[in-house]
Amino acid sequence: MIELLKKHKYKIIAAVCAFAVLTCAFLAGGSLGDNAPDVVKSSTSDVAVSAENTTVSQSTNESTSPTESPTKATGKNKPEQKATAPTSTSKTKSEQSAVSNQTSKSSSSSSSTSSKPSTQNSQSSTSSKQDKYKTDPIPEGKPQPVEPQEQEIIDNTLKCTFSISCATVLDNMDKLHKSKKDIIPDDGWILKPVTVTFNEGESVFDVLKQVCKDNKIQLEFSFTPIYNSAYIEGINNLYEFDCGSLSGWTYEVNDWFPNYGCSRYEVKNGDVIEWQYTCDLGGDIGGYYSVGE
């Protein structure tokens, strides 16, 4: 027995090592997958802390306010100008920063991020407020998203108004891809507002699919797990980016552009759903930019 073990010891060691590595990888991978937003959060806060450290060190060195440090660096050569006043303030500053390190953390980090481009700001400040599918807070009075996995479809017939429009393309015919000219209707309506029936609990995406099938309108979508929603790539062969690099499909329910995907919007009785093609990231149909976040 022992001889056998000795003979095969390398094989056994190799097998154990492989198993251990795989276990570690599995555990690490699982925890990474679960806590992905936390990892992002901690990394951004690390950035904030390090930025804060640099600003604190700058302020202890010489300057009164961290944003002015580059100009102060040149002013360092002639300290006699500010020899009286700034020394005292810098001392108090250093004491303050040493004592109230914890309290200044929030303020300095916010100031450092606010001085940076807004992308950094939104990422660090909203990562705590966004839900797990990266949706910003829903405005008050608007319906909360319902995950497609949780939607219960009850067989009872409700009605809503549904329309598909690409009127914005008519103003941007020069940007439109040459081969797509024929598919644009003259009045811009791919589907004029109609009343359609749906089952309670269905999402906007379900209704769109059904309507497109009934009216023989081509539809292509891809499911995006990170937003837990379908992404509409093209309707009636009019695709995203067909009319300039800022173009694509958006949806509007009761004059509001929801800030989450169409698979997560549960349709209520009497809703007015409008699918609109934008050529300017929503600016030309009254969404996104013009609403102002």
Binding site: I183, K209, K213, K216, Q218, L219, E220, F221, G234, N237, Y239
Partner: peptide, 18 residues
């Protein structure tokens, strides 16, 4: 690829076969 005006049928994942 699901482009095209002539829809023959739908795939199980509900995109059209053209």
């Amino acid at each position: 690829n699901h482009q095209g005006v002539t829809i023959l049928t739908y795939f199980p994942w509900e995109n059209p076969l053209t």
